[in-house]
Each structure stands twice: as structure tokens, then as C-alpha cells.
Design a binder for these strands. Structure first.
Lengths: 183, 183
DNA sequence: AGCATACGAGACACGAACGTCTCATCGATT
DNA sequence: AATCGATGAGACGTTCGTGTCTCGTATGCT
């Protein structure tokens, strides 16, 4: 009956991904515990969201590790990143919109590190001559996030087949980032 | 002092674009009227959001008209669409996230028409041989929305220069959509 | 068996935002 | 000048989510 704190975070992420406005009570019910117990684990909604932010960063970090961003062809590495990050899309979208509500400047510093890892991948591709240099790594990173979440929503709404999601995302992203001579 | 209903909608759109959680009172203050008067124009928050949805659709429609989506080279038409829609990015992002909270199925039917107009442009490009056919028009439409809003956020956060916004968006989108032989 | 810890259920107060209403005032029209 | 309509200010009740608390119970450990 009693859940590990980590599992608790997992189900909270699930519920809030489905409906970002879910109340503490709904989250507790979904986890099979009472609201009181949820409060015993997390002081309040803020604390829970902060913990979820940590979880998201850990998961994304793990995804980047699994994608081996520093190995092999940069384009292939991007493909692996998209494939690894795709299951996290909905959850990350929740965190982003949640961050949007906070005051600017107090965002979790962990995001910068993640951004830097992805941007470094694009920069490597530019240095190796695979990616065009007239699009900045920062923009390509932003576009990667945007396309992954867009693909997740499109799948959820039935506008894109789930099995095509990763391919569509990667093809559009790489097609834009790849230099013409590499095609 | 007294505002036209249309101007009222405009400032409401502005305020909610900046902070999607703004209260009715904040919206009224920003428009220079009282909460009571705001309620005289719009029965409630729901009604206001619906009216804003209409406004967004009208603006986007006008943007597509101005972009002359059915004229000339499809790639150039896409460029014009992005340029025309870019100023609407923040506002549209608000509407999308607001729609996300509604129950599925009760979304404004106007969106389908807009989607169809943009998808038709991509389909035309495919028929004319300018765009690759392994990415569906529906996905390219989705990607267009996603990249425009991503660019707006990136500009707002200082990660992309405002004057590069349209170019970066178009280059990435077209680079991905354009067939390799067209490069 | 005894005890400690964690849990569920529920009650309570607080705050925020909403929707409704009243009333006084201001301005424009006639 | 008189009147009508729209407005601003504010009070009021309601709803919803939150955070805190208590109390009875169950689970698990010694």
C-alpha cells in the first residue's frame, strides 16, 4: 500500500501530464494514498512541483546519457536524443508551462546544464561540418524541444501516427539542420 | 475612457499573453475599466476566453490572407506565413494551452479550417515537387505552429535575437520540408 | 504481546477568484 | 434642465483548492 517516494513522484508526473490543473487530492487518489499522506511527503504543491522538476531533469539527463550524445555521427546522435526524449515529451511540456508561471530568474539552474549538453551536440555537428552554421545551437536546441512536444501532442490528438512520431521529428529537425551538401 | 469591445479584447489578449493566469480584475484594470463593466461585456471568464479564441482565429485568418498562401512559390508562401504569424505567436500559445484544459472534442471548429489552409499550402508544395512527401502536411502544419511559438519564447528569454526570429524559423522549417534536390 | 510508526478519513480555517448585486455618479441626448 | 444609459466602486455569497490538525486504525518491528 505504501508507495516509495520515487513511485509517488512518478504517478504525480503522470497525472499532471494528463491534466496540469489536477488538485492535490486528485494526485493523491491517483497514487492510492490520502491527501494527508501526500502532504507528509511534500510540504505543499510548490514542493511537489520542485521535486517533479528535479525528476524531469534527472530523466532528461538519463535520456541524454542513453543517447550517447558525444559518440559517433552528430546527426545519428540527434536521432538517438529524440528517440530517448520522446517518451518524456508530455511531462516536460508540463514542466515548461509550469515554469512559465514562475517569475523570471528563479528557474531551476539544472535546465541550463541540459540545454548546454544539447547545444554542445549541435555545435559539435557544426564543427564537424555536418550541420549548417547559420542556425545557432541555442535555436536548434529550442527547436528540438518544440518539435518533440509538438509531435507528442499531434500523436495524442491523432494527427500523427505514434510509430511515425520520432521519424517525423528527426527528419524535420535534421533536414533543417543538416547542411545541403550532406543530404 | 470607454473602450470599444474590440479594443477590450485586444488588451485582454495582451494581458493574458503576458500572464495566462491573470484574474478578471487584472484584465479589467489593464483595460482601464472596472470588473463590473468587464462582466457586462463578457458574461464570465469562459465567455471572454471564447471571444478571445474568435479573435485569435480572425487574426490568424487575416495573417494567412495577407500571406497570400495560394500565390507563387510554396516555399516563399511559407516564408510569408511565418512572417505574418510571428507577431501572433504569444497570443496563439496562450489559446493553445487554454484549449488544452478543455475537454477533448469541444474545441472551436474554426481551428480545423485554419489547419486546413496551412496544410493545403504544404500539400501544394508537395504536389509542385518543392516539398518532400515523406512528411505529412498535418505534421508540417503542427511543426509550423511549434516553431513559431518556440521562436517567440526564445526571443523573449533572450536566447535568440528578435531580428533573427523569422529567418531562423523559416530556415529550419523549410530546410526540413524542402526536397534535397531543391536546395 | 506491546509499542511505534505511518496511514486514512475527516473536520476546520484561510485565501483567492468568481459571479451577482446595489447604489451613487457622470455624461450624453433630447 | 431633465432624463436615460453606462460606468465605477464596493459589498456579498459561493466555490474551490490549500494547508493544518485530530483521531482512530492498521501495519510492522522488537
Amino acid at each position: 500500500m505504501s508507495l516509495d517516494r520515487e513511485e509517488l513522484l512518478g504517478t504525480a508526473a503522470e497525472v499532471l501530464t494528463r491534466r496540469p490543473t489536477s488538485s492535490m487530492d486528485e494526485i493523491a487518489r491517483a497514487a492510492g494514498i490520502s491527501r494527508a499522506t501526500l502532504h507528509r511527503h511534500f510540504a505543499g504543491r510548490d514542493a511537489l512541483v520542485r521535486a517533479l522538476e528535479d525528476l524531469g531533469l534527472r530523466r532528461l539527463d538519463a535520456a541524454l546519457d542513453a543517447a550517447r550524445t558525444e559518440e559517433g555521427d552528430a546527426a545519428e546522435a540527434v536521432r538517438r536524443v529524440v528517440a530517448q526524449a520522446e517518451p518524456l515529451a508530455g511531462f516536460l511540456a508540463f514542466l515548461v508551462t509550469e515554469n512559465q508561471l514562475f517569475e523570471p530568474g528563479e528557474q531551476h539552474p539544472g535546465w541550463e546544464r541540459i540545454d548546454a549538453r544539447i547545444a554542445a551536440l549541435f555545435r559539435r555537428g557544426q564543427d564537424e561540418g555536418t550541420f549548417r552554421i547559420d542556425l545557432t545551437p541555442a535555436w536548434l536546441t529550442e527547436a528540438l524541444y518544440a518539435l518533440i512536444t509538438a509531435a507528442a501532442w499531434a500523436v495524442q490528438d491523432g494527427r500523427v501516427a505514434a510509430r511515425d512520431s520520432v521519424r517525423m521529428t528527426v527528419e524535420l529537425l535534421l533536414g533543417g539542420a543538416r547542411r545541403s551538401m550532406e543530404r
